[in-house]
Design a binder for these strands. Structure first.
Length: 408
DNA sequence: TCTGGGGTCCTAGGACCC
DNA sequence: TCTGGGGTCCTAGGACCC
């Protein structure tokens, strides 16, 4: 089976909460949660009381009366994440960041410089502790999947190495919920067949698992149970979608439209900053019973402008509500844009570009682009709240703009 | 215990084409 | 005569991850 154990999975412990404790020593050793309405992260002292993301703030206080709740500072977390990833880069060029607080590292090529993988893992942990003041756990194994499980077992603030040849002995006693991709629903389904550990899952014939979970998923799970995972560590390309959502009462149309505009604006701004545009717009609503409904539209050309995105979203959301959720409470709305393409020309409107845009798009498309550019620029100088787009909300969507900015 | 916001991937079924 | 099989694209929904 496979080669040597050269894949690291590094995972910062209780990341947001650890940053808060680091920056405010008075919090050290105390039960701390980050968030407000909902707990986003909690220190291990708080977890002992059952405070885990994502429970509500009120419930968290009930479980742990001494809990200290601090608001999230996302800028600080992004900054800390970048610095930690830069430390990883010092040990290997093959770093695959999979979220703000975790990454895979392939260190097979770094052994001649820094010693065996276990030594590299130890040095990384020391540097992150010394330079960033943050605890980090690392798993070392022959595959990504196993390294990820190993880092979970290592938590908090630990290191677990699974040498080549030891994979099954390590995996078999662990609960199936540790397998990446098996959540509460999958765990429950497997329990009905009497399968609770990875070893029990591994003992099942592939045909049974495929029968339960479908072709693709079943095969994935079967392979993961036997550590059959050949995925390489690769630097990530850009994301496949850009989205935003907002929980809260959106039953009233006016309020809903205001929320949708804010979401479209946030998404549009992010897309323009990343220089991408997308062809599919998906909206999502949540009803008062927590059920979710979605609707999508594929456009003939990609968009990244706030105005058309807003108008398409309103249309999809309102028609979905009219057809499927009239007289129901709406508790969340969300927009997402996918099927992204590079769009390097989006950010600025230059004089020369006017012609190109007018011939390939419509006149209103160009105006939307100019408006976006102006708003983006003003925000850069004066900050977000300085500029709002009140005019878009007056009247019905149809009255606002003469042309649909989607493809022609 | 009724819970945020950002994502990914998969399934099933329908429309449509040859 | 309503009938094959294969492929692609799209829509809606679900589960999962951090």
């Amino acid at each position: 089976m496979g080669g040597a154990a050269t894949i690291l999975h590094a995972d910062l412990d209780a990341f947001y909460a650890s940053v808060e404790v680091r920056d405010n020593p008075a919090l050290r050793g105390k039960p701390v949660a980050v968030g407000g309405g909902v707990v986003l992260a909690a220190t291990y002292e708080a977890r002992r009381f059952g405070v885990t993301a994502p429970i509500g703030g009120a419930e968290a206080r009930r479980r742990c009366p001494n809990l200290i709740i601090v608001p999230a500072r996302f800028d600080a977390y992004v900054e800390a994440s970048r610095a930690v990833m830069a430390i990883f880069d010092d040990f290997t060029p093959r770093v695959e960041a999979i979220s703000i607080d975790e990454a895979f590292l392939e260190v097979g090529g770094s052994v001649h410089l820094f010693g065996p993988p276990e030594a590299i893992a130890r040095r990384i942990r020391e540097r992150v502790r010394a330079e960033m003041g943050l605890p980090i756990s690392i798993g070392v194994a022959t595959t990504k999947h196993l390294a990820k499980i190993a880092s979970r077992v290592a938590k908090p603030d630990g290191l677990v190495v699974v040498p080549a040849g030891e994979e099954e002995r390590f995996l078999d006693p662990l609960p199936v919920g540790m397998v990446w991709g098996i959540g509460p629903v999958g765990e429950e389904r497997l329990a009905r067949y009497g399968i609770r550990t990875i070893g029990e899952l591994r003992a099942m014939p592939q045909s049974s698992i495929v029968g339960w979970f479908g072709d693709v998923w079943g095969t994935h799970l079967w392979e993961r149970a036997r550590n059959d995972d050949s995925r390489a560590v690769e630097r990530r390309g850009r994301a496949g979608s850009v989205g935003a959502q907002s929980a809260g009462d959106a039953t009233d149309p006016e309020r809903r439209h205001t929320t949708l505009l804010a979401l479209a604006d946030r998404i549009g701004g992010r897309m323009r900053r990343k220089q991408v545009a997308g062809r599919r717009v998906t909206i999502r609503i949540r009803l008062d019973d927590m059920s979710l409904l979605s609707r999508a539209r594929v456009l003939s050309g990609p968009i990244a402008e706030t105005t058309p995105l807003f108008r398409i979203a309103v249309e999809l959301v309102d028609s979905l509500i009219a057809e499927r959720a009239a007289n129901r409470g709406i508790t969340l709305v969300g927009i997402s844009v996918s099927m992204l393409e590079e769009a390097p020309h989006l950010q600025m409107v230059l004089p020369l570009e006017d012609e190109a845009v007018t011939t390939s798009g419509s006149r209103s498309h160009l105006r939307a682009r100019e408006l976006d550019a102006a708003v983006d620029k003003a925000r850069e100088r004066f900050g977000r709240p300085a500029v709002s787009r009140g005019a878009l909300l007056r009247g019905t969507p149809e009255e606002r703009s003469p042309t649909e900015a989607m493809g022609e």
